[in-house]
Design a protein around this nucleic acid. Sequence first.
DNA 1: TTAACTGTATAGAATAAAATTACAGTAACC
DNA 2: GGTTACTGTAATTTTATTCTATACAGTTAA
Lengths: 140, 140
Amino acid sequence: MNSEFIIAVHSLVFLTYIPGQMATSETIAENVCTHPARIRKVMSCLRKNGFVKTKEGIGGGYILDCNPDEVTLGQVYRAVSCGTLKPGWCSGDSEQACMISSNIKHVMDEVFLDAETQLETYLNGHTVSSILQRIKHCKE
Amino acid sequence: MNSEFIIAVHSLVFLTYIPGQMATSETIAENVCTHPARIRKVMSCLRKNGFVKTKEGIGGGYILDCNPDEVTLGQVYRAVSCGTLKPGWCSGDSEQACMISSNIKHVMDEVFLDAETQLETYLNGHTVSSILQRIKHCKE
DNA sequence: TTAACTGTATAGAATAAAATTACAGTAACC
DNA sequence: GGTTACTGTAATTTTATTCTATACAGTTAA
């Protein structure tokens, strides 16, 4: 799992928290605790998927362009972090004579692909709004 | 997600494939494509969880000590890779005044904890034997 | 007692991730 | 029309993580 997913969710929750207001990459970066350029990269992706609107130039920044009651974390995951559940490192070697070594990669790929679908289904049970609500109900 | 999970699954499938036989860390490492010391580390964990028996000294190695029809990938995940779904990097800063920044970490922790439970449930739908069967049915 | 193994720690190398820098493009404002 | 404040994106540097490799103590069979 990719940490850009966390950045995307945090940014969307933050923008939901300040409805109708633009936030610059610097403002968001400060809240998220990362570098503005990293925020811009993630936000650029969110814009391409229709979650936010961006405005360049002076007075510009990012503003929510979706219904946070309807946008699920599953949609955000798919937009930003699709395919990152499977570890980068993989076992086996397709050149080996042993059936296990040469075929396990393919089978595990399928397992992880299904696992990711399953994960997305779970994440669809959470919306940007519901995350914001839970944050609001955190005790001090 | 941790690549030690993949190593554990591969090793268990391999041991299931050669029933009653001991395999050294070197043999398994060659099949998995990693270093024997890494295999020993993972196998040590599998032993502590009752999946394999190990034998030190000459003629030693690893042998299956569970029913591969019953051992699920969920159990293996829990034993070897528990807690590795959540990315290492996390957003927010508990010292900040902003509610979002200071509380999101806690909420996302819960989301990932539940997601992991969900993932384990999915992985419980696969056994070591079922993975071996799927490998056997790979063409070529 | 020696040889072949595991168990475990640690050091080193490779890789991936994050931060930073840089700069072109864009829009508001004077 | 020039300046300022922003995004978009790529390249570079730094940092962290992961994987490999080495080392050696402990164990067991011959």
